[in-house]
């Protein structure tokens, strides 16, 4: 009688063990990074145009043909691409990142590439994202300087540069 009772109990226990083991082994997550790890300084190209109706200048986002590379780097971030914004990777082990921005311009009826230099001065902060993903380097921009060949002015929107893809800078280009 006692043996029957034990058998009954074990018959309840064993299936629950098996089922839960299957569930627990199925629930184990893979060791892969599923998060966005890109930290880029996002700049939009803007142009001032005169609004006849309101008789005032308004800023509009514009697409331009541009080539962009980091100072001292051969590798192009953008190579004669028509874009209205650019994503610039800031240096993780230096506090200044310098980019050369070439823009297509018409000068004396000739179409030429005119280069501008953009200096981004920033602080770096290490962010541990997860064991799977490792670390990202966040930046806090302190200043932005530029030459004025094609770039008219710049406006800083957000100085915190992190894994969220926010707009950080507006680059106002000249009308040529």
């Amino acid at each position: 009688m006692m043996l029957v009772n034990i058998k009954q109990k074990i018959s309840i226990l064993v299936p629950t063990v098996v089922v839960s083991l299957i569930v627990m082994t199925a629930c184990t997550s893979p060791n892969e990074c599923l998060q966005n790890m890109d930290v880029v300084y996002k700049a939009n190209f803007m142009q001032m145009t005169f609004d006849q109706g309101n008789e005032s200048y308004v800023a509009n986002q514009v697409s331009i043909v541009t080539s962009v590379h980091g100072l001292g780097k051969d590798s192009m971030l953008y190579d004669s691409a028509r874009v209205n914004s650019i994503a610039l990777p800031l240096q993780s082990n230096d506090t200044m990142s310098v980019f050369i921005i070439d823009q297509l311009a018409v000068l004396n009826n000739d179409t030429v590439m005119v280069a501008d230099t953009l200096w981004v001065i920033h602080d770096n902060e290490l962010e541990f994202v997860s064991v799977e993903c490792g670390c990202a380097v966040k930046n806090n921009v302190r200043n932005v300087l530029h030459t004025v060949n094609m770039i008219d002015s710049v406006s800083r929107v957000t100085d915190n540069v992190d894994r969220s893809s926010r707009d950080n800078l507006k680059i106002y280009v000249k009308n040529r």
């Binding site: 590798s75 990777p89 240096q91 993780s92 082990n93 990142s97 490792g134 380097v137």
Partner: peptide, 20 residues
């Protein structure tokens, strides 16, 4: 103890290893 966390800057070509 978290060891050998690599911080790689693919564009600028820098590489750093951190441990916590």
């Amino acid at each position: 103890d978290i060891q050998n966390v690599v911080i790689e800057d693919h564009y600028w070509g820098t590489r750093d290893v951190k441990s916590f």
